[in-house]
Every structure is written in structure tokens, then in C-alpha cells.
Design a protein around this nucleic acid. Structure first.
Lengths: 192, 192
DNA sequence: GTCTATAGCCGGATAGAC
DNA sequence: GTCTATCCGGCTATAGAC
């Protein structure tokens, strides 16, 4: 296998395992087993476990960027773009109920570990925040766009946490409906 | 030291370490070091690490119950009681920015570990949910009390996650103010 | 009830053959 | 670039002295 392909396979599998089992609980053996290589071969591609984490965070950053660009390119209005973000909760509901949000749970785990990569992980949230702020500005709310972006980001995070704790799909759908109503009420009443 | 005292000391320290460092990342040595006992002595009180987790979850359950009872006994109105809950975000802001919410982060970690105690941990959320639902009923919203309780619980969880990710105290205070305004708007307009 | 000593395992990481 | 073999350390857990 070429150099890049094995490396990519490692990062891809590590990404999934870090999400489903957590960074700390995932071992080199776990990743190597899924990729189909030996543990020794690992260190030809990554010197330490933290290096793998950096690569996984970079992968998630890039994937997020592409997703936001795609939503931007779909040609809808800002309201529809924001709803694309919110709809992730429904589209990924099975994984969210099982493992929570990939970004939120990683940030919380790295915060407890006081890990050097915690700020890079939070930057993924930053991508969403900035993109949402652009949408709120386009909706005609320039003054409070960043606050609204953080508010919506927090809202979706809360839904993910409780959905995972209670395994409650109806709750997800109800909250998404509430968010949609809140969004439609924003233009007419900017007090919330 | 008497049997109960050492056991209580272990649970108390484990509670803090599980919160600040995570369950998986906390070792027996960490706890023993803080308590001031040897690792060997540990197994006289707890057979496995999971047994300690059970005791920690039970401790948090009981502490939560006492806190909710105290808020109930303070003699305010339902609105004031709900604000006592919300105010936790401000009162514990330093810890929340450093380690997230103790309940939310534990639930997410145990979900990823597919741990047997994950449902018991979620029961702590259940205590808050049921108590909040009682308050919303007392506010005159019997039909949607449970939904409102879950909504507020999720909201506070989202604030905790983003506060930890961005270490943003102003964000916490802003969201608490928004929650307060939302609460005061509920009586007059039950559409949100 | 608390200690020391240690078993047994698995983690990350390395060396060197192919 | 991939492998096998191995080191070292920390982990949970146990045994047995005091």
C-alpha cells in the first residue's frame, strides 16, 4: 500500500474509534486491528498517539469546512442554510444517541485531559460559529449575529447531550421543530 | 480510620477526580494518593473500579436530591426555583469552563464506553427533569411541563459544553440572562 | 483495617530483519 | 513500507504479613 493510503486509512479508522469509544479508551491495537496492519508499522506513519489525534482533528476540520462550503453552494437562502445545520441532529440521530456529538464530546474529553489539542478541537466549533454568524448577518441581524450563532450552537449541543443520555429520538425531533419555529420568529421578533 | 470514613473519603476523592479527569483516565493510584492510603487497602472497600463508579454515581444522586429538596424548602415561587437551577451555571462557572458539566460529561463518557452504569448516570438527569417538570406545572403549564423541563435541561447542557470549549464566561452570563427572559416570557406567550 | 509485595496484563513506543 | 520481537511502565487486582 502506498504511503498516503495507509496513513489515510489509519486516520479514518482512528476518527471513527475516537468518536465511538473516546480518545483515551482507543488503543493502537484497536486502530491497527481495524486497518489491518501491525502495531509496529504504526510508528512509520505516526510517532505518538497525540500525532494521530492531531491528524484526526485536522481531518474533522477539513470535513467540516467542505460541508459548510457545500451548504453555501446549494443556493438556498440563509434560513435554509441554518436549517441544514440543524438538520444534522436528525440525520445523524442514531450516532448522536449512541455517542453524542463528535465535536462536543471530544472537546469535553480533551478539556479533562488538559490536552494540548483541546484548542484545535474547539476550533471546529469555531468554524460552525463563524459560518452561522454569516448566515444570521445575511438574515439581517448584524449586531447580534455572533451571539445568535453561539446560542444555536449551544442549543444543538444540549440536544445532543440529552439525546445520548436518554436515547430519546422524539426529543431530538421536537427540539429541531422548536429551533425551526424560533428561527422563523427571529425576523419578526428579535427579542429572543 | 473507621470503615465508613475511609470508604467515604475514597468516594469523595473519586467523585472529584472522575469529574476533573474523567472516569477512564483516573487510576486507583490517583485516588489512593489523594486519600492517603495504599493501593492495596483499596480493595478492602471496593472490589473493582466499577464499584467505585457506582458509589460515585449514588453519591451524586443523593447530593442532587438534597440540593433539589433545599431549593424546594427555600420557600420561593416556582420561577425562583427554576432560576436556582439555572444559576448553577454561574455559580459553578469556573469548574464548568474547565471540566464541563459533571453529569453531562459522565453520561457521554459512559455512553462511549458502553458502560453498565450509563443508565444510572442518566438517572441524575432524570432527577433534574422531574423536578423541573414539577416547577413548570406549578407555573401553570401542566400539558408541556416535561417537554419544557427537558428543553431547559438541554439548554443548560449546551451552555456547559460551549463554555468548556471556548472558556467563555461572558457567554455563560449572556445565556443565563436569555434563559431568564425566556422563562418570564413563558407565562404570557406559551408558543416557545 | 492497613500495609508491602507482586502477579499478570496491556498500554505506548522502539529496534531491527525483510 | 511492513513485519516480528521486545522493552518499559502503569494499570487493575490479589496474597499475605502485621
Amino acid at each position: 500500500m502506498s504511503a498516503g493510503a495507509t496513513r489515510d486509512a489509519i486516520v479514518k479508522r482512528a476518527d471513527a474509534l475516537f468518536y465511538e469509544g473516546g480518545f483515551g479508551a482507543t488503543s493502537f491495537s484497536d486502530i491497527a486491528g481495524l486497518v489491518g496492519i501491525s502495531r509496529g508499522n504504526f510508528y512509520h506513519h505516526f510517532k505518538t498517539k497525540d500525532d494521530i489525534l492531531d491528524a484526526v482533528v485536522a481531518l474533522r476540520m477539513e470535513r467540516t469546512r467542505r460541508m459548510l462550503d457545500a451548504w453555501e453552494a446549494e443556493g438556498g437562502d440563509p434560513r435554509q442554510r441554518i436549517l441544514s445545520f440543524v438538520h444534522m441532529l436528525v440525520a445523524n440521530r442514531a450516532q448522536i444517541m449512541a455517542f453524542g456529538c463528535p465535536v462536543g464530546t471530544l472537546c469535553c474529553e480533551l478539556a479533562k485531559l488538559d490536552h494540548a489539542a483541546q484548542h484545535k478541537a474547539a476550533d471546529i466549533f469555531g468554524l460552525f460559529r463563524d459560518w452561522l454568524a454569516v448566515q444570521f448577518r445575511a438574515l439581517g441581524m448584524p449586531a447580534r449575529s455572533e451571539e445568535l450563532a453561539l446560542h444555536l450552537l449551544a442549543w444543538s449541543q444540549g440536544v445532543a447531550v440529552l439525546a445520548a443520555a436518554f436515547r430519546d429520538e422524539a426529543f431530538i425531533r421536537r427540539e429541531v421543530a422548536t429551533i425551526t419555529a424560533w428561527l422563523d420568529g427571529l425576523a419578526s421578533n428579535q427579542s429572543d
